[in-house]
């Protein structure tokens, strides 16, 4: 899976449109409500802030390895990918359509800090609607796969949404959490969480940590082609299970066990050691393939 640097296209640095174009089969993406037939957020205009005709999210249909899929891609470079009224409604609309039309999957390219504060109430309710729409699509048998590797990660309500998806594919650069480190530092103090300590932030919220703990199903390189092959591989081996109490009971037990074991830890290094990683201090330096080998060698 190692890729020549010359052909590597960073997912982290790409725009949402470039990610979608490189993720799906070439030329197969058809955007629904493209910028030409959309309107920017009037709520931002009222605050004299610049809008975007796509309101920071792209939605449409296309193909992945020949299979019909739907795709949603948040643009982290517009308002931090945050969810406002129109942005949220585009996502809800496509998820509801997926539950009806049953594509092979919905690929959800999350790159968002959560609720757009300028439209806070609209954004919070929209995220709640997205949560229910993800679960409705899944209950209709449509897998919803979250792809996380953008500059804004998946935070706030979008961190919850990511964990409601069938699975998360994440890159080392990807981050997944609820509150941002800056928020925790502001409220609880720098001793609690130093948001400027980049290495610490990655050991607590980063892709390697989430993958080692099992919160993300796959770790992929920061490369658009790697996300494409990862999503293709994941979907070829995945059948969406019907919602069941047995499944949630199993999750409940696993979460309770994990909390009991690790509740006092404050650094990824402690968790990795407890998971059985032989040299936890080396984890940040390992490349993707080596880290996957470490994870696959862990006692279960």
């Amino acid at each position: 899976m190692s890729l020549a640097l010359a052909v590597r296209k960073s997912w982290f640095e790409a725009t949402a449109r470039a990610r979608v174009a490189g993720l799906l089969d070439a030329g197969s993406f058809h955007e629904i409500l493209p910028p030409a037939v959309s309107q920017p957020s009037p709520h931002l205009a009222q605050l004299e802030l610049p809008g975007a005709f796509d309101d920071g999210v792209i939605a449409g249909s296309g193909r992945l390895a020949g299979k019909p899929i739907f795709a949603i891609a948040q643009e982290g470079q517009f308002m931090g990918g945050a969810v406002g009224e129109i942005h949220g409604a585009k996502i809800v609309g496509l998820l509801r359509r997926a539950a009806q039309e049953k594509p092979a999957a919905v690929l959800f390219l999350i790159d968002s800090g959560g609720v757009r504060l300028h439209e806070a109430n609209a954004g919070l309710i929209a995220i709640s609607e997205i949560m229910r729409a993800v679960l409705d699509a899944r209950a209709a048998g449509v897998p919803v796969i979250a792809l996380v590797g953008g500059s804004c990660g998946a935070f706030g309500g979008m961190g919850i949404v990511a964990k409601l998806c069938s699975a998360i594919l994440i890159s080392e650069e990807g981050r997944l959490a609820l509150s941002g480190p800056e928020v925790i530092e502001t409220v609880a103090g720098v001793e609690e969480f130093d948001s400027k300590d980049r290495a610490l932030v990655w050991r607590v919220t980063g892709g390697k940590h989430r993958y080692l703990m099992g919160d993300c199903a796959m770790l992929v390189e920061d490369d658009i082609a790697a996300f494409r092959s990862g999503a293709t591989e994941f979907l070829s081996g995945w059948g969406e299970p019907a919602p069941s109490i047995a499944h949630l009971r199993a999750s409940q037990q696993a979460l309770e066990k994990r909390l009991a074991a690790y509740a006092t830890y404050r650094d990824g290094l402690q968790v990795w050691a407890a998971l059985g990683v032989a040299e936890p201090e080396n984890v940040p330096m390992l490349d993707r393939d080596s880290l996957v080998a470490v994870k696959e060698g862990l006692p279960t």
Partner: peptide, 23 residues
Amino acid sequence: LSRSQELLCLNGSLAHLAQCVDL
């Protein structure tokens, strides 16, 4: 708002709760 809570993926436990209400 705490580092140890985020370390164990607090968004995951909140999603699990939401999924139980949905079920």
